[in-house]
């Protein structure tokens, strides 16, 4: 009897150890989504994540905040169906550590500089130039010419394409190639004599540092010509209009991609990496009045934020 009891005890212990080992060694069936956020204290990253989670509230979601958590520490405990990386830091870490899982990205500046596999999906950060040009002509019917400072090394092709896109909405686009950061002021002064407004684009030579940005705004302000910019940050310098990607819409687009992957729906090649579908427009009405610019009131329903 005693022997039988001992044998049963040993068997029970073995069963328990085996179940523990199984838990550790063999990963469970893939389920849910792993969100890897570069830093949730960055509002724009958090907004996208929140919208993504709202859209997929019925799906199990595990979050990792790289500002606090370590991805390799958490990986052994999870087996997601797909991973959503928010920001470049998150994308780089996920791409190098998690293989053979569909990977969705968003909030990466110039995604083309990263390694992209056939199993990668995403939402771009930059809005198409055509969308911005359309809004310029819609909001400001009296503005017919725009000036762009750009460096040929970074934006030659972009500028050539933008010239034809501007024509489509009845705008003339004039460019000044900036080779050296020190030339910006002189090139800008020349440009401002020809155009009604300045279109500020993302260019590392033109927007070399904060002082350079301030100088561009000061010079343009002296001739009372408006600046249109690509990032809401320029509003504080006095940009009349900024058009940026709408963050909640990007979250919804990423969620839609995730849903399609989980439901094994066919995704067209051109849809795998998408342009942002929504825009967020900030208009500085104070500057509009100061520069005495005519504005199309019926276009105001397209403006999200107005600075009074």
């Amino acid at each position: 009897m005693k022997n039988l009891f001992n044998l049963l005890s040993i068997l029970l212990i073995l069963l328990f150890v085996n179940s523990c080992l199984q838990k550790e060694i063999s990963p469970s069936k893939p389920e849910g989504i792993l969100i890897v956020n570069s830093d949730t204290s960055v509002e724009k990253y958090l907004t996208i994540q929140q919208e993504f989670e709202t859209e997929l509230s019925s799906i199990k979601i595990t979050n990792i905040n790289l500002a606090k958590d370590s991805l390799p520490d958490i990986l052994p405990d999870i087996n997601p169906l797909l991973v959503y990386a928010i920001g470049s830091k998150a994308y780089n870490q996920v791409a190098s550590t998690i293989k053979n899982k569909p990977l969705i990205f968003s909030s990466m500046i110039n995604w083309r500089r990263f390694d992209i596999s056939p199993n990668t999906y995403g939402v771009e950060l930059e809005l198409p130039a055509e969308m911005q040009l359309f809004m310029y002509s819609y909001l400001f019917p009296d503005i017919s010419s725009l000036g762009v400072l750009y460096s040929e090394n970074h934006n030659k092709q972009w500028f050539e394409l933008a010239v034809s896109q501007a024509k489509e909405v009845g705008l003339s686009l004039y460019g000044q190639n900036v080779i050296n950061t020190a030339d910006v002021s002189q090139k800008l002064e020349e440009l401002l004599t020809k155009v009604d407004a300045l279109w500020l684009i993302s260019d590392p030579i033109v927007l070399h540092d904060v002082n350079q940005v301030q100088q561009i705004f000061d010079l343009t302000n002296t001739v009372k010509k408006p600046i249109f910019a690509y990032n809401t940050l320029f509003s504080k310098y006095g940009a009349v209009l900024t058009i940026a990607s709408d963050l909640p819409t990007m979250g919804r687009q990423a969620a839609d991609l995730a849903k399609s992957i989980i439901e094994k729906q066919f995704i067209d090649t051109e849809e795998k990496i998408q342009l942002p579908a929504g825009s967020n427009i900030t208009l500085n009405l104070k500057k509009v009045r100061e520069y005495n610019i005519n504005i199309n009131h019926s276009a105001l329903s397209s403006v999200e934020n107005i600075i009074q």
Binding site: Y138, D246, T249, R252, D256, Q274, A277, G278
Partner: peptide, 21 residues
């Protein structure tokens, strides 16, 4: 239909023109 909510009509039109919808 799968609805993608965007901020404004012009975004919806651009979405279809650029293949996001």
């Amino acid at each position: 239909f799968k609805v993608l909510t965007v901020p404004k009509d012009i975004d919806a039109l651009m979405s279809v023109l650029f293949g996001m919808a």
